[in-house]
Amino acid sequence: MVNIAVFASGNGGNFQRIVEAQNSGEGRGYRVKLLIVDKKDAFAIERAKALGIPHYFVNPKEFNTKMEYEEKIIEILKKEEVGYIALAGYMRIISPVLLEAYINKIINIHPAYLPEFPGKDGIGDAFKAGATKTGVTIHYVDSGVDTGEIIYQERVDIKPSWDLEDLKKAIHEVEHRIYPMILTKLFKKGE
């Protein structure tokens, strides 16, 4: 069983889905030990409370450098015996400090079919570009922005009648289905 920490900055929908899959037995081989957020008003905190998952708000503004900020996070992860990190809407670039502490053990879900539409607004960028298809990518995190080794991708066709909210809904449905599935495939062998 692999202990994972989920990092989020906002809503926490993927975080909740990962925990619910774990609790139902659909998600296997991993256990969500904690949630880390970088925004005190992240709704993910409310989800963590409702799910009984410990959460930590680590405020980047309380640290002089990104290195100090990530060293504090590493301290928490080590104390909680976390083996892997799952990013789920965490809107910060991971620095070498955390990357080196968790080499090939940080996984991200990105709301686009990489290498198309990397960056912080994959859904909006695809919509603005008038793309007819986009997707969701799960990948390992490296020192680039959404450039790490791809673990799994799934396409989403954009219907001509859709507005941006329709596209967001379709992307989130795929994310919520595939993130627990891929975590299970990665970690099930460790059960």
Rank of each mutant, 00 (worst) to 15 (best):
N3L: 07
N3K: 14
I4E: 05
A5C: 15
F7A: 14
A8M: 04
S9R: 06
N11G: 11
G12F: 01
N14G: 12
F15L: 14
F15H: 01
F15Y: 06
Q16T: 05
Q16S: 13
Q16V: 02
R17Y: 01
V19I: 10
Q22W: 02
S24Q: 01
E26C: 11
G27E: 01
G27V: 07
G29V: 02
G29M: 03
R31W: 00
R31P: 03
K33N: 06
I36V: 14
I36R: 05
D38F: 00
I45G: 13
E46C: 05
R47D: 08
A48Q: 09
I53T: 08
P54E: 04
E62A: 11
K66R: 15
Y69L: 13
E71H: 08
I74G: 11
I74L: 14
E75Q: 10
I76R: 03
L77F: 03
K78N: 09
K79T: 09
E80D: 08
E81K: 14
V82H: 00
V82S: 07
G83A: 11
Y84C: 12
Y84A: 12
Y84V: 09
Y84D: 12
A86V: 01
L87K: 06
A88P: 11
G89V: 02
R92C: 08
S95T: 14
L98M: 14
L98F: 01
L99P: 14
E100A: 10
E100W: 00
I103H: 06
K105R: 15
N108S: 09
F117Y: 09
G119A: 07
K120I: 15
G124E: 08
F127L: 14
F127W: 00
K128C: 09
A129I: 06
G130F: 03
K133V: 03
G135Q: 08
G135N: 04
H139C: 04
Y140F: 12
V141H: 09
D142H: 07
E149D: 13
I150Y: 03
I150E: 07
E154T: 01
I158W: 05
P160F: 00
S161Q: 12
D163W: 02
K168N: 12
E173I: 03
H176T: 07
I178G: 01
Y179W: 00
P180N: 10
I182V: 13
L186G: 05
L186Q: 01
K189F: 11
E191L: 15
